[in-house]
Amino acid sequence: MQPESGFSTRAVHTGSEADPVTGAVITPVYATSTFKQDGVGGLRNGYEYSRSANPTRTAWEECLAALENGRHGFAFASGLAAEDTLIRALLKPGDHVVIPNDAYGGTFRLFDKVAARWGVEYTAVPIDDPGALLAACTSATKLVWIETPTNPLLTIADITEITTALADHDLHVAVDNTFATPYLQQPLDLGADIVVHSTTKYVNGHSDTVGGAIAVNDDDLAERIRFHQNSMGAVMGPFDAWLTHRGAKTLSVRMERHCDTAERIAAYLSSHPKVAQVYYPGLESHPSHAVAAKQMSRFGGMVSFRHKDGEEASVEMCNRAKLFTLAESLGGVESLIEHPARMTHASAEGSELEVPSDLVRLSVGIEDAEDLLADLEQALD
């Protein structure tokens, strides 16, 4: 695939070259744990054991890297497995990390409850305030962790401004690109060193597999990640890799539909008497709307809002939804609704990352917009 090929062309074709023996246009599921060697140490195309490499996973990793305009892609068993592998590859006891003060609850738990016990410290800052971020960096800071948009408050970080300001620091900048996806935003092109995904979400897009991913450009960094991926072993299995690769082929068309409907829903909620505040970077009222418009091609399919009548009203509204399924996760073709304080972000309760108790998060699917709006109207009223 030519590097100048368009996004959708790369999504469909990278890693999906026709099989030279059978002509199969889709990479098979190589459901094997080991590979026959041609003599001791005589590997066939580098394959010996599926934890180290598997052709189905390789095909997906090639596609992933191409979508992020990266040179190297790595597929993991989950988004948190990707994050944990990255922490082990880059950090040691005594190192320091800067994270968003409204990071995903699972990411916060990983740094606060797992990495902290290993001797890695962190500071949480408003990720849309580059000055606060720079002030939090010390000589021990080795990783700046960015989510943009953040989960669940959809805060926007200016990737270019942050990476430019940190260019002379001895650290890596990693961007969790799960909400935006590589279709809407490509952090490596904006100066980031590392891109991380929960591919469970939009990249796969069908709520039928769990996975994670890392993409980088630097060859030395890639070797460190590859070593730890193999050593720690939290790799994506071949069938999950096949499903994720298949899902990614339609990412562009799905994201257009997600964005179209999310924009309508955000506008509707903004004028609803029961809604106190809407978080959506596509709204001009969003404090970082201009930054989002600069670095994203569109504004995504996630919408959060606060219920004017408080926590119990927001919980009741989630329970009344019919077409919006009450469930955790996001990014699938079906629309989901959840109460972050009691669900996805319960691990942050009592911490500086605690989310508002009246917050509702929507993952807007690809159903007919009119039906989704009608469901929200009955759930709110």
Rank of each mutant, 00 (worst) to 15 (best):
P130L: 14
G131N: 15
A132W: 08
L133K: 06
L133R: 08
A135L: 09
A136S: 14
T138W: 14
A140R: 15
A140F: 07
L143Y: 07
V144Y: 08
W145G: 05
W145S: 10
E147N: 13
T148L: 15
T148F: 12
T148M: 14
N151F: 15
N151I: 12
L154V: 13
L154Q: 15
I156T: 09
A157K: 08
D158K: 03
D158P: 09
I159K: 12
T160S: 15
I162F: 10
I162K: 10
T163E: 11
A165R: 14
D168I: 04
D170S: 11
L171Y: 04
V173T: 11
V175D: 09
V175T: 02
D176K: 09
N177S: 05
N177Y: 05
F179K: 08
F179G: 00
A180R: 05
P182M: 05
Y183W: 05
Y183F: 09
Q186R: 14
Q186L: 03
P187T: 01
L188I: 06
L188S: 02
L188V: 05
D189M: 06
G191S: 06
D193L: 04
V196G: 00
V196F: 01
H197F: 08
S198K: 01
T199H: 02
N204Q: 08
G205V: 00
G205S: 04
H206Y: 07
S207M: 10
D208H: 09
T209S: 07
T209H: 06
T209L: 06
G211H: 03
G211M: 03
G212D: 04
